[in-house]
Design a protein around this nucleic acid. Structure first.
Lengths: 233, 233
DNA sequence: ATAATAGTGTCTTTCAGACATTATGAT
DNA sequence: ATCATAATGTCTGAAAGACACTATTAT
């Protein structure tokens, strides 16, 4: 391989979840230079011997860092620059990944890196992050917010069975506006992408039905955007 | 630089234009191995000495291949695999670029590679293409079609001054359905992104006004999708 | 005058927001 | 019985499709 034709390359997943009701990102504290001791994304080099393609490389990375083999992800954007990494011209492909916190147990981790869920608010408050990871996280959040206005992307934050109020709350926290309960239910029902499990949630008052995403696979695109913004009294 | 940490890397623009009224892609016939003598995208390695980042690398590539320095582009997707390039694990970042054919003159090209505009139909008819370029072109077209349903992306195919019928025709060829003349004009007018130059096109019958995109910069997102499909009688 | 195409206005449909009313389950 | 929340149905508004009718220019 020729130096002229190659670049330092890595993949960087931005893994979002709701941790303590706050939209949060999985970060690791770097143990080595460059950017040692700073927080960054749980990415890294592609293990070319074990991975036949980029998607496999990302899956391996997710498995290594979180212990889960199945979690939703999609490619976000590729960043490349001579200044991003002090070791030279480098390129990184960022991915947006979503999971329910329960699916991930830190106990299953085999490495010893310091890891944590950090809320987006706390990420913004960090004085410095590794590489371009702050920008990448912002871009990932923008993508998540934009696509949540017209797709069912936020169901990927839910466990297998979930209630409409739980999903609605995820939508609201992502897009930053409130949705009426009735309008939300109508939007979801008319999409025909969920099935009622027949079960009900536990707790007080009238319980919500537990739904499940019926057809595995593709993202659903709603006919219109979520526009509105008013609170249900 | 360590071989373990780096990969073969390139950028590949998919440059669309309307050539002889057909949506077409700029292709070059490869002069060297691998895939010698096959048609492929006009991409290549990043010149790390001349480019500080990926966008610059892409601009340089576009300038070298087409002779234009300003043309619209956006990042499409990054592809990586051990099998894409016989020389080893490689990664390429594809870009979607749009231009009006007039802006590009083959005469301005300094290199000697065989180049041509090939219609998408002819691309599909090719028995074989270099690398994963056929898949990349298909993905680029999908992105173009999808985004044309809710953005003003197709104005990037227009020269500076253009008529609504010309723009409408571009939309129709991209999305594959017809739009009513009146609905199209209403959609464009209500977006408030074009200004009437006061000039009229030349030709027969009642001439159309020539419009110009008023604010340079961002892509416009329409409030709703183009859905419908019926011909104006 | 005629043909071709541009511009205007109205009706319908779809879908989201608002909101009132009814239903259900925990206490 | 009361309260909280879920379900249902109606009204409004925005925006796209359909289409009739008028306006303008070349021939």
């Amino acid at each position: 391989m020729n130096d002229v034709d190659s670049v330092l390359y890595s993949v960087d997943p931005v893994i979002f979840t709701f941790h303590k009701s706050e939209l949060s990102v999985l970060l690791v504290k770097r143990q080595i230079e460059p950017y040692k001791a700073l927080w960054g994304l749980p990415g890294g080099r592609v293990d070319k011997d074990k991975c036949a393609n980029l998607a496999e490389a990302l899956k391996l990375k997710l498995k290594q860092k979180t212990g889960i083999d199945q979690l939703f992800f999609e490619q976000l954007e590729t960043y490349g620059s001579e200044s991003m990494d002090p070791r030279g011209w480098s390129v990184t492909t960022a991915y947006l990944a979503l999971t329910h916190e329960d699916e991930l147990s830190f106990a299953s981790l085999k490495n010893t890196e310091a890891m944590m869920w950090m809320s987006l608010e706390d990420v913004e408050a960090l004085p410095k992050m590794a590489f371009w990871h702050r920008k990448i996280i912002r871009d990932a959040f923008s993508r998540l917010r934009d696509k949540s206005l017209y797709t069912d992307l936020p169901v990927n934050f839910m466990p297998e069975k979930f209630t409409y109020p739980a999903l609605k709350s995820a939508y609201e926290k992502i897009i930053g506006v409130e949705i009426t309960r009735q309008g939300f239910a109508r939007r979801m029902n008319s999409a025909n992408i969920f099935e009622d499990t027949g079960e009900r949630e536990e707790g007080k008052n009238r319980p919500s039905p537990l739904y499940r995403k019926s057809q595995r696979g593709g993202a659903y695109v709603f006919p219109g955007l979520i526009k509105g913004v008013k609170n249900d009294k």
